[in-house]
Design a protein around this nucleic acid. Structure first.
Length: 199
DNA sequence: TATTGGATCGCC
DNA sequence: GCGATCCAATAG
């Protein structure tokens, strides 16, 4: 590693190489960190969704290999970020081996470091409003399309060991009404009882 | 080149 | 419950 990172250790690429559902479940309790000029902006992951393979009609990759979805077909451990509804960014981590399109969408965080700056960037007053939604957490952490394709095994934007998660719940994915039978898959994971979940 | 609609959010 | 706002994916 060319640069010291104050002792912080990003999860290894082997973590993202695992089965996508396993990654989605294991991410609960991990810490997503963005290093900025002012310091660190971070939060514990409390809600995720898995998008798995070329058949999953809820996944962008179901349309095949395109310029947009190329990252999902690539090697694991990279950020897949896209603009939605013209205004908000969604942050995903690419999973599984190269050639198999899959990713995990991070839907909500429990704020940890840089709370004051995140409150300011979100223009809200309470902790629970900072990152309780996928478009909200990217704004809070300052994640933009510029970071699409960034290596998460790096010292700028990464995920590291966080804390032990509480009990983990599972349910249907949100906002994928167009996906036919695939919208019924229980591929959303969340920490039961967390005050920082979306919706 | 033109059209369409979305892995959302905040305000009415 | 609805409009914002823009880009990728399609169709032509």
């Amino acid at each position: 590693m060319s640069e010291r990172n104050q002792g912080r250790t990003p999860l290894p690429r082997s973590f993202y190489l695992q089965d996508t559902l396993e990654v989605a479940r294991s991410l609960i309790g991990k810490l997503l960190v963005h290093k900025v000029e002012e310091g660190f902006l971070s939060g514990f992951v409390v809600e995720t969704e898995a998008y798995v393979g070329p058949e999953d009609k809820a996944s962008h990759a179901s349309r095949g290999f395109t310029r947009r979805t190329a990252l999902m077909f690539g090697p694991p451990g990279y950020a897949y970020i896209y603009l939605i509804y013209g205004m908000y960014y969604c942050f995903n981590v690419v999973t599984e081996k190269e050639g198999f399109p899959a990713a995990v969408l991070i839907r909500a965080l429990e704020p940890y470091e840089g709370v004051e700056l995140m409150l300011k960037q979100r223009n809200v007053k309470s902790l629970r409003e900072i990152a309780n939604g996928t478009g909200k957490l990217t704004k809070a952490l300052g994640i933009t399309k510029e970071m699409n394709g960034w290596d998460l095994c790096s010292t700028e934007l990464w995920i590291e060991e966080g804390r032990a998660p509480g009990e983990i719940g599972q349910g249907k994915r949100i906002g994928v009404h167009y996906a036919g039978e695939w919208k019924e898959k229980p591929w959303r994971f969340f920490e039961i009882g967390s005050e920082y979940l979306s919706r």
